[in-house]
Amino acid sequence: MIPALLAIVRREVRLSLREGWQAATALLFFILVVMLLAFGIGPDPVLLRRVAPGALWTAALLSCLLSLDRIFAADHYDGMLDRLLASPVPAEGTALAKMLAHWLTTGLPLTVFSPAAGLLMNVPAAVMPVMVASLAIGTLLLTLVGGAMAALMAGSRRGGLTIALLTLPLYVPVLIFGAGALDKALAGKEAGHAVLFLAALLCAALPLAPLGAAAALRE
Protein backbone atom coordinates (compact mmCIF):
# COMPACT_ATOMS: atom_id res chain seq x y z
CA MET A 1 0.00 0.00 0.00
CA ILE A 2 2.88 2.38 0.80
CA PRO A 3 4.24 2.24 -2.78
CA ALA A 4 0.74 3.00 -4.09
CA LEU A 5 0.47 6.04 -1.80
CA LEU A 6 3.92 7.23 -2.82
CA ALA A 7 2.87 6.84 -6.45
CA ILE A 8 -0.14 9.10 -5.83
CA VAL A 9 2.08 11.68 -4.14
CA ARG A 10 4.56 11.51 -7.01
CA ARG A 11 1.78 11.90 -9.59
CA GLU A 12 0.27 14.92 -7.84
CA VAL A 13 3.60 16.68 -7.40
CA ARG A 14 4.55 16.03 -11.01
CA LEU A 15 1.17 17.29 -12.24
CA SER A 16 1.37 20.51 -10.28
CA LEU A 17 4.97 21.11 -11.35
CA ARG A 18 4.18 20.55 -15.01
CA GLU A 19 0.85 22.16 -15.58
CA GLY A 20 0.94 25.43 -13.74
CA TRP A 21 4.01 26.04 -11.64
CA GLN A 22 1.69 25.89 -8.67
CA ALA A 23 4.57 25.79 -6.21
CA ALA A 24 6.04 29.01 -7.54
CA THR A 25 2.61 30.68 -7.68
CA ALA A 26 1.85 29.98 -4.02
CA LEU A 27 5.30 31.18 -3.00
CA LEU A 28 5.10 34.37 -5.06
CA PHE A 29 1.63 35.05 -3.70
CA PHE A 30 2.98 34.69 -0.15
CA ILE A 31 5.82 37.16 -0.78
CA LEU A 32 3.42 39.56 -2.56
CA VAL A 33 0.94 39.63 0.33
CA VAL A 34 3.77 40.32 2.79
CA MET A 35 4.99 43.08 0.48
CA LEU A 36 1.52 44.62 0.20
CA LEU A 37 1.10 44.59 3.98
CA ALA A 38 4.51 46.23 4.39
CA PHE A 39 3.56 48.92 1.83
CA GLY A 40 0.23 49.49 3.57
CA ILE A 41 1.72 49.75 7.05
CA GLY A 42 4.65 51.94 6.06
CA PRO A 43 8.41 51.58 6.27
CA ASP A 44 8.88 52.10 10.02
CA PRO A 45 11.17 49.15 11.00
CA VAL A 46 10.04 48.97 14.64
CA LEU A 47 6.37 48.90 13.67
CA LEU A 48 7.04 46.34 10.93
CA ARG A 49 8.76 44.03 13.39
CA ARG A 50 5.87 44.47 15.81
CA VAL A 51 3.25 43.35 13.25
CA ALA A 52 5.50 40.78 11.51
CA PRO A 53 4.00 37.65 13.20
CA GLY A 54 0.44 38.49 12.22
CA ALA A 55 1.42 39.65 8.74
CA LEU A 56 3.56 36.61 7.92
CA TRP A 57 1.00 34.14 9.24
CA THR A 58 -1.93 35.81 7.49
CA ALA A 59 0.04 35.72 4.24
CA ALA A 60 0.86 32.03 4.76
CA LEU A 61 -2.80 31.28 5.50
CA LEU A 62 -4.02 33.00 2.34
CA SER A 63 -1.46 31.38 0.10
CA CYS A 64 -2.35 27.91 1.46
CA LEU A 65 -5.98 28.68 0.75
CA LEU A 66 -5.26 29.64 -2.83
CA SER A 67 -4.93 26.19 -4.33
CA LEU A 68 -7.07 24.12 -1.96
CA ASP A 69 -9.85 23.55 -4.47
CA ARG A 70 -7.35 21.97 -6.84
CA ILE A 71 -6.68 19.04 -4.48
CA PHE A 72 -9.85 17.14 -5.31
CA ALA A 73 -11.94 19.17 -7.78
CA ALA A 74 -9.87 18.58 -10.93
CA ASP A 75 -9.71 14.82 -10.35
CA HIS A 76 -13.40 14.79 -9.55
CA TYR A 77 -14.36 16.34 -12.88
CA ASP A 78 -12.32 14.05 -15.12
CA GLY A 79 -13.33 10.92 -13.18
CA MET A 80 -9.87 10.17 -11.82
CA LEU A 81 -11.15 10.47 -8.26
CA ASP A 82 -13.71 7.70 -8.79
CA ARG A 83 -10.94 5.47 -10.14
CA LEU A 84 -8.77 6.17 -7.10
CA LEU A 85 -11.68 5.45 -4.76
CA ALA A 86 -12.46 2.19 -6.58
CA SER A 87 -8.83 1.07 -6.30
CA PRO A 88 -7.66 -1.17 -3.40
CA VAL A 89 -6.01 1.86 -1.74
CA PRO A 90 -8.33 3.05 1.07
CA ALA A 91 -9.95 6.45 0.57
CA GLU A 92 -8.18 7.73 3.70
CA GLY A 93 -4.82 6.89 2.11
CA THR A 94 -5.74 8.63 -1.13
CA ALA A 95 -6.86 11.73 0.77
CA LEU A 96 -3.68 11.79 2.88
CA ALA A 97 -1.45 11.32 -0.17
CA LYS A 98 -3.17 14.14 -2.06
CA MET A 99 -2.92 16.45 0.95
CA LEU A 100 0.77 15.66 1.41
CA ALA A 101 1.36 16.44 -2.25
CA HIS A 102 -0.45 19.75 -1.80
CA TRP A 103 1.80 20.60 1.13
CA LEU A 104 4.95 19.63 -0.81
CA THR A 105 4.00 22.07 -3.57
CA THR A 106 2.70 24.99 -1.45
CA GLY A 107 3.58 24.80 2.25
CA LEU A 108 7.10 23.46 1.89
CA PRO A 109 8.43 26.04 -0.62
CA LEU A 110 6.73 28.75 1.41
CA THR A 111 8.51 27.54 4.56
CA VAL A 112 11.86 27.29 2.81
CA PHE A 113 11.67 30.84 1.46
CA SER A 114 9.96 32.37 4.52
CA PRO A 115 13.25 33.89 5.82
CA ALA A 116 13.19 36.14 2.74
CA ALA A 117 9.70 37.34 3.64
CA GLY A 118 10.89 37.67 7.24
CA LEU A 119 13.67 39.99 6.11
CA LEU A 120 11.08 42.17 4.37
CA MET A 121 9.30 42.51 7.73
CA ASN A 122 12.55 43.24 9.58
CA VAL A 123 12.54 39.95 11.53
CA PRO A 124 15.99 39.42 13.14
CA ALA A 125 17.99 36.36 12.10
CA ALA A 126 17.93 34.92 15.63
CA VAL A 127 14.16 34.41 15.36
CA MET A 128 14.30 32.69 11.96
CA PRO A 129 14.57 29.10 13.34
CA VAL A 130 11.36 29.51 15.36
CA MET A 131 9.63 31.06 12.34
CA VAL A 132 10.69 28.27 9.97
CA ALA A 133 9.80 25.52 12.47
CA SER A 134 6.39 26.96 13.27
CA LEU A 135 5.62 27.56 9.58
CA ALA A 136 6.69 24.02 8.63
CA ILE A 137 4.30 22.51 11.20
CA GLY A 138 1.62 25.14 10.69
CA THR A 139 1.40 24.97 6.89
CA LEU A 140 1.00 21.18 7.01
CA LEU A 141 -1.77 21.70 9.54
CA LEU A 142 -3.39 24.28 7.24
CA THR A 143 -3.23 21.86 4.31
CA LEU A 144 -4.83 19.04 6.34
CA VAL A 145 -7.72 21.16 7.64
CA GLY A 146 -8.26 22.84 4.28
CA GLY A 147 -7.94 19.53 2.44
CA ALA A 148 -10.78 18.06 4.50
CA MET A 149 -12.93 21.08 3.57
CA ALA A 150 -11.93 20.75 -0.08
CA ALA A 151 -13.04 17.10 0.03
CA LEU A 152 -16.44 18.25 1.32
CA MET A 153 -16.71 20.64 -1.60
CA ALA A 154 -15.59 18.17 -4.28
CA GLY A 155 -18.38 17.94 -6.82
CA SER A 156 -20.11 21.14 -5.81
CA ARG A 157 -20.82 23.92 -8.27
CA ARG A 158 -19.16 26.61 -6.21
CA GLY A 159 -15.42 26.68 -5.96
CA GLY A 160 -12.75 28.66 -4.21
CA LEU A 161 -14.72 31.33 -2.35
CA THR A 162 -16.97 28.86 -0.55
CA ILE A 163 -13.92 26.84 0.49
CA ALA A 164 -12.43 30.05 1.89
CA LEU A 165 -15.62 30.74 3.85
CA LEU A 166 -15.60 27.22 5.30
CA THR A 167 -11.89 27.00 5.99
CA LEU A 168 -10.83 30.40 7.32
CA PRO A 169 -12.77 30.16 10.62
CA LEU A 170 -11.11 26.80 11.24
CA TYR A 171 -7.69 28.35 10.60
CA VAL A 172 -8.03 30.70 13.57
CA PRO A 173 -6.35 28.39 16.16
CA VAL A 174 -3.37 27.82 13.84
CA LEU A 175 -3.05 31.56 13.30
CA ILE A 176 -3.24 32.29 17.04
CA PHE A 177 -0.62 29.74 18.08
CA GLY A 178 1.64 30.28 15.05
CA ALA A 179 1.69 34.04 15.41
CA GLY A 180 1.94 33.60 19.18
CA ALA A 181 5.13 31.55 18.85
CA LEU A 182 6.69 34.17 16.61
CA ASP A 183 5.53 36.96 18.90
CA LYS A 184 7.17 35.32 21.91
CA ALA A 185 10.39 34.69 20.01
CA LEU A 186 10.47 38.34 18.88
CA ALA A 187 10.03 39.48 22.46
CA GLY A 188 13.01 37.31 23.43
CA LYS A 189 10.90 34.82 25.40
CA GLU A 190 10.82 31.04 25.27
CA ALA A 191 8.67 30.09 22.22
CA GLY A 192 9.11 26.34 22.43
CA HIS A 193 5.76 25.44 23.97
CA ALA A 194 3.74 27.40 21.37
CA VAL A 195 5.54 25.45 18.64
CA LEU A 196 4.91 22.23 20.57
CA PHE A 197 1.23 23.13 20.79
CA LEU A 198 1.13 23.48 17.02
CA ALA A 199 2.79 20.07 16.79
CA ALA A 200 0.12 18.65 19.12
CA LEU A 201 -2.61 20.06 16.86
CA LEU A 202 -0.81 18.47 13.91
CA CYS A 203 -0.77 15.10 15.69
CA ALA A 204 -4.54 15.37 16.11
CA ALA A 205 -5.17 16.53 12.54
CA LEU A 206 -2.91 13.97 10.86
CA PRO A 207 -5.29 11.04 11.43
CA LEU A 208 -8.56 13.02 11.73
CA ALA A 209 -8.37 15.12 8.55
CA PRO A 210 -7.92 12.15 6.15
CA LEU A 211 -10.73 10.31 7.99
CA GLY A 212 -13.10 13.25 7.53
CA ALA A 213 -12.01 13.79 3.94
CA ALA A 214 -12.52 10.11 3.11
CA ALA A 215 -16.01 10.17 4.66
CA ALA A 216 -16.83 13.17 2.48
CA LEU A 217 -15.33 11.66 -0.69
CA ARG A 218 -17.22 8.38 -0.34
CA GLU A 219 -20.58 10.16 -0.35
Binding site: A148, M149, L152, M153, G155, S156, R157, R158, T162, L165, L166, L168, P169, L170, G212, A215, A216, E219
Partner: peptide, 30 residues
Protein backbone atom coordinates in the same frame (compact mmCIF):
# COMPACT_ATOMS: atom_id res chain seq x y z
CA UNK B 1 -19.15 31.67 10.58
CA UNK B 2 -19.70 27.94 11.10
CA UNK B 3 -23.45 28.49 10.75
CA UNK B 4 -22.97 30.59 7.62
CA UNK B 5 -20.49 28.07 6.20
CA UNK B 6 -22.96 25.24 6.75
CA UNK B 7 -25.79 27.13 5.01
CA UNK B 8 -23.51 27.94 2.08
CA UNK B 9 -22.14 24.39 1.81
CA UNK B 10 -25.49 22.60 2.08
CA UNK B 11 -26.86 24.66 -0.79
CA UNK B 12 -23.94 24.42 -3.18
CA UNK B 13 -24.63 21.00 -4.69
CA UNK B 14 -26.84 20.03 -7.62
CA UNK B 15 -28.05 17.04 -5.62
CA UNK B 16 -29.62 18.40 -2.39
CA UNK B 17 -29.04 15.11 -0.56
CA UNK B 18 -25.30 15.40 -1.18
CA UNK B 19 -25.27 18.94 0.20
CA UNK B 20 -27.03 17.79 3.35
CA UNK B 21 -24.49 15.02 3.93
CA UNK B 22 -21.48 17.25 3.29
CA UNK B 23 -22.99 19.81 5.64
CA UNK B 24 -23.51 17.18 8.33
CA UNK B 25 -19.79 16.36 8.28
CA UNK B 26 -18.96 20.07 8.66
CA UNK B 27 -21.39 20.43 11.57
CA UNK B 28 -19.80 17.44 13.34
CA UNK B 29 -16.30 18.83 12.83
CA UNK B 30 -17.36 22.28 14.04
Amino acid sequence: FLYVGYIELSRSFDDPAKGLRAGAILVMAG
